[in-house]
Design a protein around this nucleic acid. Structure first.
Lengths: 247, 247
DNA sequence: CGCTTCGTTGAAACACGTCAATAAGCGTGG
DNA sequence: CCACGCTTATTGACGTGTTTCAACGAAGCG
């Protein structure tokens, strides 16, 4: 990403894959289904973008400029009530996809939870790609179905789980997602990419309750708190069971 | 639906549209995007099915036999925690679509909330249709995206709304969906297709709390309770505003 | 006419929220 | 370097919205 920052409109075709070849999520993102040939086309409309924690990506109820792959960092999708109450409805880790096809405005507020690297595709051009490459569209469809499953799983958490179960579940989720990215090995140290406030907004709790559950899990020896942004999970299965997962 | 109950494998092509032509949801379900010609093919794999309230349609974590359009009645999709706690993650009204493509087992428990009429499509054959008819697939994709939006909207309700707002929101939702089906006109009498227990499981509350909020909304003159299954909403906008909708 | 299901209502318990104080970390500027 | 302000997180005391437990009534059904 860092080597190619130019904004020349038509990159040299011969070198046009260089950006993707070095991409951290080349084989795991939606790009994974594309042949080298197809990837050249997508690469031509791809633009890297770096964001700092807190930067707004797309605002609520506003026209969508672009779709994007999350290359590094974490993006939060949230919704608001008129009086300001907030609910995070999705956390995007690499190599997740950001965007809502077939709609010209966004239904969520998207914000960088950490420093973030995106690989952006201009809206209309990307939808053109969807028309041209059926397997890309198919992949996006299946991705959407998985997101729907995940959202419904989260509904169970929000509606029926206790604060303790909620926090445990979130930590398990973060541990597993981090392990996928490769930052961490399972069962070891886990970096918490989001603040307590974000956790609260994701779990439908307050900051204070989240904090209390942290110390509670600590006294139960289910986690060790290294510092504000790092914990250790000695037994992931035990934590998962507490979170209400089967087995 | 009631006229054709035969199970002959290959219906007379010349008459094969008779079932769809009289279908209540022909133009509003996913079938709406199909030409008459395409519809003939789909019709050949369609089988009507009637269910009584409480009947199980597909069990959790079990192979999926079929997809279906909801023709009449209401279907509930729910999930369970190991100890039996339940969360309803979706209510399907006509002309909603039931099923999860590209996965051979169901992630939800589907049950008839009322007496239900379905129009069923055998699993493999329907996925074959998706391959053959791109516009059907496109329609299903967009349907899925809308479901995802709706699920995330519901996450806000589950995580951040009060019991009062939750019940108000549910009633507004039911009123609007019922109006679409045509059973009711907006602002008038509304039939409640589900029990208090189902409402509780949909809202992440207990039966008692739901009941208390009903009487609360009644004293606030926002609803009139006709009987257990019927209410009147004198001012839908007022109720919607209480539920936390903008404007 | 019992039996069961469904809904309402009350009293008490409790999980979580609210309010408030404190501490740690961090960048900025004198 | 320390002082200062700001943000983030923890902890305690207290308040409250929702759950729990229990009793009761109404409707449907064999």
């Amino acid at each position: 990403m860092s080597t190619v920052q130019t904004k020349t409109e038509v990159p040299d075709i011969g070198k046009s894959l260089s950006r993707c070849e070095s991409c951290a999520v080349r084989h795991h993102s939606i790009c994974g289904v594309l042949s080298e040939e197809e990837l050249i086309h997508l690469n031509q409309i791809a633009r890297p973008r770096k964001l700092k924690a807190g930067d707004v990506i797309v605002s609520d109820e506003e026209p969508i400029d672009y779709f994007a792959n999350v290359v590094s960092g974490v993006v939060k999708l949230s919704k608001f009530l008129p009086d300001g109450r907030q609910q995070i409805v999705g956390l995007l880790f690499p190599p997740d996809f950001l965007g809502r096809a077939y709609k010209n405005y966004s239904s969520n507020f998207a914000e960088a939870a950490t420093d973030v690297e995106l690989c952006c595709f201009q809206h209309d051009r990307f939808e053109g790609m969807l028309k041209k490459f059926p397997n890309l569209k198919q992949k996006l469809f299946e991705t959407t179905l998985n997101e729907l499953d995940a959202a419904r799983e989260w509904m169970v958490l929000l509606g029926r789980k206790t604060a303790e179960e909620k926090v445990a579940d979130l930590l398990v989720m973060i541990a597993k997602r981090s392990a996928l990215v490769g930052c961490t090995n399972l069962g070891g140290f886990v970096e918490l990419p989001i603040t307590r406030a974000d956790m609260a907004d994701y779990l439908g709790l307050t900051i204070e309750t989240v904090s209390r559950q942290f110390t509670r899990l600590k006294t139960m020896k289910l986690i060790n708190i290294i510092d504000k942004r790092h914990i250790e999970i000695p037994d992931l299965d035990a934590l998962a069971q507490l979170a209400g997962h089967e087995l």
